[in-house]
């Protein structure tokens, strides 16, 4: 690791200024992913701006919208009473990720910025278009058991590794971004990108921008919900497939639904068409099976991850079943 410069500030404006004028500078919050990547030589910023002291750690309910500061730790968010009551789906997603120690340090903003776990991305001697554009994709034709089945491109089939983000995309969250020019707000679903021809870009954050907070509108999806993560061991492993499911059920009829998947795409994979399909249908296994089938439209395997074409719909069925059974 190069001996980068280290600068700390407790003023948002100062932090933004420092990064905007220095192309080799980057923010560090929890550091649980960035330090890992720096140790592996995947990234090598020359200046780190420590933003842990910025005033971005509040969780507040304002006008039926939950505001979550970008520096709130994953643990603090999962343990927050408002989150437990209003967005228990998010709580489950958070607790499915990483380990207690990592969640204590990893921040909301950092979790969103988390990079893929693809082995080719992490090994600087192997090809990876995400790490080194133009070098090729090692996973296509290689080890791709963990990789994407939706929205892939010939340049990259990596998946976004977050669980939290799967919960957030299902909850219609919005992201507030700040730069020296001011703030802008985008839908969470538009934050992460598909790989396309530019897999080096994980998201639509502009250079010099900082995630400052999330906003989640209150909903009625806190009764019938489930986050189901299928992985190779019981805990502390990335998802093969995960499903965030939430339903509003009246007289066994689904009036509202949210469905998103993790471990299947370059971004948290929201299934809005399937949600529309579910609305007005009876909350039965038959409905769930049809929904799962619909969810797989456009899915494509790459050999070792072909099993996801079966695992993904099955996981949707099980998550919806468990969500329904929750009440």
């Amino acid at each position: 690791m190069i001996n980068f410069q280290f600068v700390r500030t407790s003023v948002i404006k100062t932090a933004l200024g420092l990064v905007s004028k220095d192309s080799k500078a980057t923010f560090i919050a929890g550091g649980t992913n960035l330090v890992d990547l720096m140790k592996r030589g995947v990234t090598a910023p020359e200046k780190l701006i420590d933003i842990n002291h910025l005033p971005l750690k509040q969780i507040e309910l304002k006008n039926n919208v939950l505001h979550i500061g970008a520096l709130v730790s994953n643990s603090a968010l999962a343990e927050n009473q408002l989150v437990k009551e209003k967005f228990p789906l998010l709580m489950l997603a958070l607790k499915a990720g990483a380990s207690a120690q990592l969640r204590n340090v990893a921040t909301v903003g950092g979790n969103m910025m988390q990079r893929t776990r693809c082995g080719y991305f992490y090994d600087t001697t192997m090809p990876c278009n995400k790490r080194q554009p133009g070098s090729g994709c090692g996973a296509i034709g290689g080890y791709n058991r963990m990789h994407a089945i939706f929205g892939t491109s010939e340049f990259c089939i990596a998946v976004h590794p977050s669980d939290m983000c799967v919960g957030l995309v299902a909850l219609d969250a919005q992201v507030v971004l700040a730069s020296i020019k001011g703030e802008r707000k985008i839908n969470f679903i538009d934050f992460h990108r598909l790989a396309g021809t530019t897999p080096e870009k994980d998201n639509n954050l502009q250079k010099g921008e900082l995630i400052v907070r999330l906003e989640i509108p209150i909903n009625n999806l806190n009764k019938n919900f489930h986050y189901l993560k299928v992985r190779d061991r019981t805990s502390y492993a990335f998802a093969l497939v995960s499903v965030a499911a939430a339903l509003e059920i009246n007289n066994n009829t689904i009036s509202n639904a949210r469905l998103a998947m993790g471990g299947v795409a370059h971004k948290p994979w929201r299934l809005q068409l399937v949600e529309e399909f579910l609305k007005g249908k009876p909350a039965t296994t038959a409905t769930f099976e049809e929904a799962a089938k619909l969810a797989m439209n456009g899915a494509k395997g790459f050999g070792e991850n072909d099993f996801k074409l079966k695992l993904a719909p099955n996981t949707i069925i099980e998550a919806l079943t468990l969500a329904k059974a929750k009440a």
Partner: peptide
């Protein structure tokens, strides 16, 4: 008082 992985924490972040 909070448990963390010290390997991923830069010493400088612990001022």
């Amino acid at each position: 008082g909070v448990r963390v992985n010290s390997c991923l924490s830069l010493a400088a972040m612990n001022e």
